[in-house]
Structure formats: C-alpha cells, structure tokens
C-alpha cells in the first residue's frame, strides 16, 4: 500500500469532515452520526462478506458484544469509556473467532454459514435478554456525562468527527485489503477455495483473520452506538435489524469494494429520510416506497452503486474521448 492508495479514502473522509462545520441542522448531524455508525458496522461485514465472500446474517453477534461489553464495563464496573471501547472491540473479536472457528472448521459456507451466524446472534439475544449482568430485559443505561473521558461530547460535531475517524480507519483497512497479500489470499479463497488451497493459501487462517477483522469493526460500531445513544437492550444490541443493516449497505453500495459500505449506508439512510416525508397519515407507505426503490436499484445497478458509478465513469470517459458509448442500454 502506497501513499497514493490512501489519497482517495482521505479525500472522502475530508468531504464528510467538512459537512458538520457548514452550519447544518441538528437533525442532519444526528443523521450523519447514526449513518456513520451503521457504515462502520457495514464495513466490518464487507471485509468478511464482500472481500471474503462469506455472507453473514448474524453480525449482530459482534455489534451487540461490542455494545454490551463497553456498557457493562462502564455501568457495572465503572471502567473508563475508552478502555471500555478497546475491551468491547476485543470481546467482539473473541466472539468472531469463536463463531468463525466452529463454522469454518465444519466447512460451512454460503447459505449454511449465513444461517449459523443468524442462529448464533439469536442465542446471544435470548441470553442477553434473560441474564442478570446484562441488565436483562430492562437493558443498560449509560450515565449521561459529557466529557472526553466518557467519550460523550456535548458538541455533536465532535462525535461526528470521532465516528468519521473510525470510518476512515475502516476505509484504510479496506484499501489495504485490495493491496496486500492477505487481501489477495482472501479474495482467492472467495473465488475458489480449493484452488487457493492448492496454491498454498491456508483458507482456515485467512477466513479466521477476516472474521476477526470484520468482527472488530462491527463491534467498534456497537461500542460507538452504546456511547452515543447511551441505552441498549437485547433487541437493540443483538436484534436482527443490525445484521440486516450491516449486510444491506455493502450489497447496495457494492460488496467487496472499498467505498461500497459507506456509499450504501448513505444512500439507504438518505432514502429512508427522504421517503419519511411522504408517509402522510398512512403509516407504512414510506417503507413500501423504500422497498420498491431498493428492488429497482438492485435490478438496474448490478454491482451496487459503486458498480453503477464505475460504469458511469467509464461511459463519461468514452464520451470525453469523443466516441459513442460502446453499449447503449
């Protein structure tokens, strides 16, 4: 990975970093923070699902572990929020390795891997809802106490910068995957596991590395979620909603691309906000429109938004060269 490789991620981060300081509304700021948290979880999914081809339906297991670990440490044990964050990520990685080890050892992939991750997340949800140290069904409430030490900022622009910093880190990691030996091995395993093995790649090690990295980013998103909203319960932390969010954004944005998860999260949540306005007095209509647009995007944009952008760029280049676009329609 060279300095020029980092140029594009930095540029994108810079664009996002400017927005909060342009005097945007609080609603926009809140939207940005939440969207970036989802994008971070989605970047995690993208490492395993996009680059590694292992579709997980259970990233909630990592997200929730991060969220619960950081919340429990702060609420029950009075640990500093930053330490909580680090421990949350570590706990997420541990869960990732556990789930990964069991499933990859059994050779699960495709739908089977998807279903087993889904089941693991559900087990976590049921247990977290019943156990005592998680606050049970009442959930956990982190004390509202703005300060650098508590990782809560009265000025939301700072929160936004913090989350954006982590998303930037996710972009750098993703970029590294496209440039490094490990990334090449991961993609080789995705394309053809047997062939990769024949070439001397250890698929188990590669996949475990990917799930650890993937779980780390998604757990980080969970920690930030807990620190921002200050309240979690089993359905929030381990519910299927975040598993879906985490996979939806990269798939819409472009799975296995560096910017796919971020673009996807921005597009999906932007669309969600945009359709809210049309609900009127009939609840549900906005989400119907959301679903329809989602299907249309998939139907007409193979490769997600990034794929669409790449084709658009290609077409513009051909036009710029004064030729007719090669393929019409």
């Amino acid at each position: 990975m060279t300095a020029t490789d980092l140029l594009r991620p930095l540029l994108v981060v810079a664009v996002f970093a400017v927005v909060p300081w342009l005097g945007v509304s609080n609603a926009t700021l809140n939207f940005l923070v939440y969207m970036l948290i989802v994008a971070l979880a989605a970047q995690g999914w993208n490492i395993l699902g996009g680059f590694g081809g292992q579709y997980s339906f259970g990233h909630a297991a990592f997200f929730g572990t991060g969220a619960y670990a950081t919340a429990i440490l702060q609420v029950q044990l009075g640990v500093n929020a930053w330490v909580g964050l680090v421990c949350g990520v570590a706990a997420g990685v541990a869960v990732g390795l556990f789930v990964g080890f069991l499933s990859f050892r059994s050779g699960l992939r495709g739908s089977y891997f998807a279903l087993v991750t889904l089941a693991f997340a559900e087990v976590f949800r049921v247990v977290a809802n019943a156990a005592g140290f998680t606050g049970g069904a009442a959930g956990l409430l982190i004390r509202l106490e703005p300060g650098v030490a508590t990782l809560q900022f009265a000025d939301r622009r700072i929160t936004c910068m913090l989350v954006l910093g982590f998303v930037g880190l996710g972009l750098v990691i993703s970029t590294w995957l496209t440039r490094s030996r490990f990334g090449a091995h991961l993609i080789a395993v995705r394309e053809n596991e047997q062939a990769a093995e024949a070439l001397g790649v250890d698929p188990m090690r590669v996949k475990l590395g990917a799930i650890a990295l993937s779980a780390a980013l998604t757990a980080l998103a969970g920690c930030l979620y807990a620190q921002y909203f200050l309240f979690i319960d089993a359905t929030i932390a381990y519910g299927p909603w975040i598993s879906v969010e985490a996979l939806l954004a990269p798939l819409v944005g472009g799975a296995g691309t560096v910017f796919g998860p971020l673009i996807g999260a921005l597009a999906l949540h932007g669309l969600g906000e945009a359709t809210k306005g049309i609900a009127g007095s009939v609840p549900g209509i906005d989400l119907v429109v959301f679903g329809v647009v989602l299907i249309l995007v998939i139907a007409f944009l193979p490769g997600g938004l990034m794929g669409g952008l790449a084709r658009l760029a290609g077409r513009l280049r051909t036009i710029a060269r004064g030729r007719r676009p090669a393929v019409e329609a």
Partner: peptide
Amino acid sequence: RHDDGNILLVTLGLAIVLENALLA
C-alpha cells in the same frame, strides 16, 4: 439475475414492501 447477493436483497426488499403494504 440469479446472483446470490441480489436475490437476498430482492427478497428482503419484497419483505419490506409486503409487510408495509399490509400495514398501510
């Protein structure tokens, strides 16, 4: 177009549409 990821997204999209159409 028989791509796994797309099928997943399309059925997910359909689930959202159906559920909320029923709600509406």
